[in-house]
Simulated scan of single mutants.
Amino acid sequence: MSMSAMSEKEFELKRQGKITRLTNRTFKFDPRVKSGWFSAVYFLKTAEIIKQKRPKQRVTMQFFQKKEAILCGIDEAIALLHSFATNPGELKICALHDGDKISPFETVLTIEGYYEDFGYLEGIIDGVLARRTSVATHVYNVVQAAGDKQVIFMGDRDDHFSQQAGDGYAAYIGGAAAQATHAMNEWWGKAGVGTMPHALIQLFDGDLIKACEAYVATFPQDNLVALVDYHNDVIADSLKVARHFGDKLYGVRVDTAANMVDQYFLNNRHEFGREDLRGTNVRLIRLLREHLDQAGFPNVKIIVSGGFDADKIRQFQQQNAPVDSYGVGSSLLKVNIGFTGDCVLLNGKAQAKEGRQYNDNPRLSQVEFPLI
């Protein structure tokens, strides 16, 4: 089943609120979902038993989780149902929207229909909602911690590449529109952003100036952001590249490893004892800003990356660290919000395992088929 990315027109209509859901044309699903390849075997056995012994039983399945969170994955789950459920138009689906703030145990999605038509998709829907909501919530928390500073989603190296499109969409829902790969932008119609890795400098024998010159010559339309921690001498290299490129230098990125102490501190031992000087730290960034300003480069922006999460960003913000953008990766991809799907009504009457019951949510809206 081949499905194209969301068109620019669809993206703009959704941004304006003129359409409220993405469609099954947005997502790329493995066609083996239909055969049950990705479903737990007990769901497949249950569907077969019901077909033979108790067909046409109308159930209501509801989904919830247990934290304060930013919901994501709803549109994907609906598209999944539309693509693989039997007779999807006969299902009654009510749902919240991607981007909604949700509470513990709040019902986010209900599906009403014959069990054998959709029941085998329960675990897949749980997984979709769990991953997308976890990423969206982590990104939202980071964006809130960063305030008016830009957050760049750099999660390409922290998980399997096949997850990038969905993770990128979830990051967008969480509030991060600047993302590292084109695939991350696939579902919502934009393009990846980025400048240089350490490998580019290495390929020019460690010569940062030559690497930057090659970058400018090859991508003259881009903003030049120099990666300045290659020699573990952030301030000296930032000043060197700023003096060489002048107004052509847009910014510098600091990505000092957590076990390293920058050369500036090794040359200025009186700095030791004030705070932890390893990695990309507030003191280093403050000194970098001071040196750039004193040298006549107040417009050069500072981007930081390496081990940032909501707590570390919050610490930087509380200390008024002169950061313009935060690059964040691995901390955003931890799946720690699990969803549960339960069948709670049978033919319109309460029937569920002990401790679970139908939990009506007036915030849900019914999904109309066919989708756009």
Rank of each mutant, 00 (worst) to 15 (best):
V139C: 07
V139D: 05
V139K: 11
Y140I: 04
N141E: 13
V142G: 00
V142Y: 06
V142I: 09
V143Y: 02
V143E: 00
V143L: 01
V143C: 08
V143D: 01
Q144T: 10
Q144H: 08
A146W: 12
G147H: 04
D148F: 10
D148K: 11
K149V: 00
V151A: 04
I152S: 08
I152Y: 14
M154I: 09
M154L: 14
M154E: 12
M154N: 10
M154G: 02
M154R: 10
M154P: 01
G155Q: 04
G155W: 05
D156T: 09
D156L: 04
R157W: 08
D159N: 03
D159G: 09
D159Y: 02
H160G: 12
F161V: 11
F161L: 05
F161D: 11
S162E: 10
S162P: 05
Q163W: 15
Q163I: 06
Q164L: 11
Q164G: 03
Q164S: 11
G166T: 00
D167N: 13
D167M: 07
G168W: 07
G168P: 06
A170L: 03
A170N: 04
A170F: 00
A171P: 00
Y172T: 06
Y172Q: 11
I173W: 06
G174F: 04
G174R: 03
G175S: 02
A176P: 03
A176I: 01
A176T: 07
A177S: 12
A177N: 07
A178I: 14
A178C: 15
A178N: 14
Q179C: 08
A180P: 15
A180Q: 15
T181K: 08
T181A: 09
T181M: 08
A183T: 14
A183I: 15
A183K: 13
M184D: 06
N185K: 09
N185Q: 14
E186G: 04
E186D: 07
E186T: 07
W187T: 07
W187Y: 13
